[in-house]
Design a protein around this nucleic acid. Sequence first.
DNA 1: GAGAAATCTTGCATGGCATGCAATTATTGA
DNA 2: TCAATAATTGCATGCCATGCAAGATTTCTC
Lengths: 213, 213
Amino acid sequence: MQLLSMHGKDTMGLRERKKQATRRALQEAAVRLTLERGLEHVTVEEIAAEADVSPRTFFNYFATKEDALLGDVPAAPDEEVRRVFVEGGPTGGFVDDLITVLTASLISSEGLAAHREAMLLRKRLMEREPQLVPGMLGRFHNVEQELSRAIAERTGTSPEDERPQLVAATAMAVTRHTVKCLHLKEGESVADVRAVLRSAFRHVGEAYAPSDD
Amino acid sequence: MQLLSMHGKDTMGLRERKKQATRRALQEAAVRLTLERGLEHVTVEEIAAEADVSPRTFFNYFATKEDALLGDVPAAPDEEVRRVFVEGGPTGGFVDDLITVLTASLISSEGLAAHREAMLLRKRLMEREPQLVPGMLGRFHNVEQELSRAIAERTGTSPEDERPQLVAATAMAVTRHTVKCLHLKEGESVADVRAVLRSAFRHVGEAYAPSDD
DNA sequence: GAGAAATCTTGCATGGCATGCAATTATTGA
DNA sequence: TCAATAATTGCATGCCATGCAAGATTTCTC
C-alpha cells in the first residue's frame, strides 16, 4: 500500500522488494489453494511450497493461516483523510464526510480498480469458508474503534460520551452491508460506491427516525 | 436454558442431568482459569481436569476452547417471539417490536437477573482477551442473519431486496453497543434495557436522518 | 432385578498450527 | 572485500482438534 505512494520503486532495495514479493506470493497461494480445495484441505506447508519458501518462513510473514487469507483491508483510514474529517471537513456535512472516511478505509489510495480483483476473491472466500467471517468482522471492528475516536474528536464530545461509539458501530454495519452488496462491475467508480453508501445511510435514518412509524 | 422452561427436573433422567452439569462445569472452569491466568496460559487439559473429566471428553462438549468461553448468548430469538414479530406484533411499531426480539435474543426467557453474572464475566473476558472478540462478533452475526430473515418476512419484501439485511445489521450494531454499555447493576430490569435500546435507536435515526444536518 | 441396547467416557494415535532458538544464508554499507 | 545487519531455514516443542475402538454407565424391556 505504501509501495506506490511513499516509496518509488528505486528507493526500495533488493531486500525490500523480495519481501513484498514473498508476501504477495504467500497471500496469492493461500487464497488460490483455499478456493480450489477448501480451507481444511490446505496446509501451511503447501502454501509455503507454492511460494517457494520454507514452512517456517510463512510465519515470519503471517501470524496465522487466516491472516494470509484476509489481507489488509479494511485498513485504518489514511492519516490525512482522518485529520481533515476531525477538523470538520471536507464538506461539513456529517454523513458525506463520514462516507469519505469510510471509502478511504475500504479502497485506500490506489482507487477501486486496483482492489476490484482482491475484493472479488475475498467475497468468494467468505462464501466458501464461513469460518473466516469472524476474522473479517474483527478487522472491521478494529476500524470501527479508530472511527469512533475520530468521530469523538470531530464532534468534541466528552470521553465518557458513548454516542460516537454507537454512530461508528452503525456506520461500519452500513459499510459491511455495502461491501457485501457491491456488484464490483468493471465500470464501477468510487462515486458509485459513495452513492450506494449514501442511499444506505438514508434508509437507516428513515427506518429508525422518530418521525416515521 | 431449557432446563427450567421446557423440562421439569423430573423429566430429565440422570444421564441428561450429568451432561448439563459437566457442560456447566467445563464452562465455569474455562472462564475462571482464563480470567485468572490469561487465555494463553490455560490448556484444555487443565480445564478438563478442573471439571473432573478427561481431556478427550472436553471435545465431546465443545468444538473449540473458545466455544467453552463464549457460551450460548446471544442465541437465535425464541421461536414464539419470532413468530409474533413476523406477524406484525406485538405492538405494531417497528422499532418497539424489534426491541422485543432483540431483548429476547439477549436475555432468553429466564430474565435479566439469571444472566447478570454470566454477562459480567463475558464482559471481563472480552476486556482481558481481545482475541475472543471476533468469535463474539461472529455469534452476533449469526443472530443478525436470523433477524434479517424475520424482518424480510414481516415486511414482505422480495428476496432480492437487501434492505432487511441492512436494517438487521444496524440493529445488531445497536444491540452490541447497548450490551457493551449496560451497567449491569443489581436493580436493572428488562424495561431498563428496552429503554436504553430505544434511546440508541432514536439517536441513530437522528444521526443519519435526511432532515437534520 | 437381569440382560440387552443405547449412550457417554476414555485412551491412544495422528496431523496440523504456531513459537522459540540457533545456525545458515543473503543483502547492505563502508 | 569485509563486517554488520537482516532474512531464511531446520529442529524441537507444546497445544489444539479429530477419528477410532474399547470400556463404563445409564436406560429400556421383559
